[in-house]
Simulated scan of single mutants.
Amino acid sequence: MKTALITGASSGIGRAFAQELALRETNLILVARSQDKLYQLAQEIQGQTSLAVDVIVQDLTEPEAGQKVYNQVKDLGRTVDLLINNAGFGDYGPFAERNLSQQLNMIQLNVTVLVELTHLFLAQMQQRGQGGIINVSSIAGFQPFPYLSTYGATKAFVLSFTEALWAENQGKGVHISALCPGPTESDFFERANFPLTFASKDGNGLTSAEAVVKDALNALENNKSHLVTGGLSNQFLVNASRFLPREWLVNAIEKQFRG
């Protein structure tokens, strides 16, 4: 039976990954800093299945957090067949007015620990000749996003990094895919401090986390380098830079996302 490690597993897309993979009879290692939520989710899954569900409580914004998680997995004696780097957050507002420590923590969580965990577990997957990695990017990774400048830049990194690894690992038995969701049912807007008027306006078009997860797992199985979820508006946005001047596009986004 395979084992999946999921970061940011306590809510949103991470929680949906855990629930869907449990239905697919996959043992789980759940990682997040929210101890109560993690143990509650683990108990729910164990109460409905005979799966092994381990919990690793770790603040992934800490230095060398990825190595700490890797060491705990080794201590558990578990082999990770599927790595889902889902943990991440955004921070809305003009960059110069936002807290610098928050921006640096975002880079640590969205980029650094993702690279760290990917490097640590990918080598083992290559040795076994099988495995899978899903790195959660965003439709914000396809073009600059004013008022989400650091977040968009981190997700652009994740998309580029993941697609490069997808190409490197063709024929090695390891599938790697970037998940690029549009607005999804989660606490993203609240944690990113979006204005209530904007969040409520956008809320009607949210895709369910469950639908995003099912599509992501199917894309991985079919060895897709990336997946954009949501409707036609998301497809238009991620392809707009191919047809429109970049300055015009980023100015249009700035006007839309201005508070």
Rank of each mutant, 00 (worst) to 15 (best):
T3N: 09
T3W: 03
I6K: 02
I6H: 04
I6F: 04
S11A: 15
G12C: 11
G14H: 11
Q19E: 15
L21M: 14
A22P: 07
R24F: 06
T26K: 00
T26E: 05
L28H: 08
I29A: 04
I29L: 12
L30M: 09
S34M: 01
Q35F: 01
D36I: 13
Y39H: 15
E44Y: 01
I45L: 05
Q46P: 05
G47L: 06
A52T: 13
A52K: 10
V55T: 14
V57N: 03
L60I: 11
E64P: 02
E64F: 12
E64M: 11
E64G: 03
A65Q: 08
G66W: 06
Q67S: 13
K68Q: 15
Y70Q: 04
Q72L: 12
G77V: 11
R78N: 07
D81R: 05
F89K: 04
D91Y: 15
D91G: 04
P94F: 00
A96K: 06
E97C: 02
N99C: 12
Q102K: 13
Q103V: 05
Q108Y: 01
L109C: 13
V111Y: 01
L120M: 12
F121V: 08
Q124G: 14
Q126S: 09
G129R: 02
G129D: 10
G129S: 09
Q130C: 14
Q130N: 13
G131D: 06
I133R: 00
S138I: 09
I139L: 02
A140K: 01
F142Q: 05
Q143P: 03
Q143W: 00
F145C: 06
P146Y: 02
Y147Q: 05
L148H: 08
S149L: 03
Y151M: 06
G152M: 00
G152V: 01
A156G: 12
A156S: 14
L159D: 05
E163I: 08
A164P: 08
N169W: 03
N169V: 07
G171C: 11
K172R: 14
A178Q: 08
L179N: 09
L179T: 13
E185R: 12
S186H: 09
A192H: 10
T197V: 12
F198S: 10
S200I: 11
S208L: 08
V212N: 04
K214L: 13
K214A: 14
A216N: 08
L220F: 10
V228K: 00
L232Y: 09
S233M: 10
L237A: 13
L244E: 05
R246H: 14
W248Q: 07
W248C: 00
L249W: 03
I253Y: 01
I253L: 10
Q256S: 12
Q256P: 01
F257E: 04
